[in-house]
């Protein structure tokens, strides 16, 4: 447990020593504000809910989360510090989890800093704060899922740009598999059970139900298993690379 905390602390200080964390947080806040108020018409809706705010998160995360996570392992390999890290008395697991937690904390911090929008909606109306909490939880889990995928691609290459692009493509697949325009298209030639099966892999359907305030264990399990599977694969890749 101790090495995980040590590694997470170092990673976190790394995010804030370079502009990565600040740029991510500022851009996330600017874009989420822009989409919520300008594009989705938060005020015009006249509803005391944050639906307009959360609806954009899958798309915002698509580009921003891989940007945070892309250096996680590729930087380590480029600098050669992976040799230092993995010859310390730590297991690869502790390193993988420590790094993941630190990056996830950056995403969590950015999400927490959107609190003014929560204050606004409470000031203007009487929203169901339980639903809003569920929305935040869902958004945080979704960010974690994207991030775990980025960790996996970042372990594959020493090139951050490659890691970024591959993560975006993989995450895009997870969005589109359950995105209504795509599923509507699929229904025309595929069997409904197949379409449902593909859609079950999508973050969209799971995020939407959580965001509506339905905390279904299946949705939670979905996000946790995407994180678990991706980090497990990260471990396999890190080991395989050592084997040369």
């Amino acid at each position: 447990m101790k090495p995980i905390i040590t590694i997470a602390k170092r990673e976190l200080s790394g995010y804030f020593a370079s502009p990565v964390a600040f740029v991510f947080i500022v851009i996330f806040l600017l874009l989420s504000g822009f989409f919520t108020f300008m594009v989705a018409g938060f005020f015009e809706r006249g509803q005391a809910s944050l639906e307009a705010f959360f609806a954009w998160h899958p798309w915002l995360y698509l580009f921003l989360v891989p940007a945070v996570g892309m250096r996680m392992w590729s930087e380590e390999r480029r600098l050669g510090t992976i040799e230092l890290l993995l010859t310390m008395p730590v297991t690869p697991w502790q390193a993988i989890v420590g790094k993941f937690i630190a990056a996830w904390a950056v995403v969590g911090l950015a999400l927490a800093l959107t609190f003014p929008v929560w204050i606004t909606v409470n000031y203007l109306g009487n929203p169901d704060n339980g639903v809003i909490f569920a929305g935040y939880l869902g958004s945080f889990l979704m960010g974690g899922a994207y991030l775990a995928i980025t960790a996996m691609t970042s372990a594959m290459t020493r090139n951050q740009v490659v890691a970024f692009i591959v993560s975006v493509v993989l995450s895009l697949f997870l969005i589109l598999a359950g995105y209504p325009p795509v599923t509507d298209l699929l229904v025309q030639w595929a069997k409904p059970w197949l379409v449902d099966g593909i859609a079950a892999f999508s973050v969209m359907s799971h995020f939407e139900s959580i965001q509506k305030g339905v905390l279904d264990s299946r949705d939670l399990l979905y996000f946790l298993s995407v994180i678990g599977f991706s980090l497990f694969t990260t471990g396999v890749i890190v080991r395989a690379h050592r084997a040369g």
């Binding site: 050669g80 510090t81 040799e83 010859t87 008395p89």
Partner: peptide
């Protein structure tokens, strides 16, 4: 027993890598 063994070792890898931002 990698952890027990690694505890006993100090290692300077080739090209002396270290975290540039620290």
């Amino acid at each position: 027993q990698p952890i027990e063994a690694k505890r006993l070792i100090g290692y300077l890898p080739e090209n002396a890598p270290s975290y540039a931002d620290m």
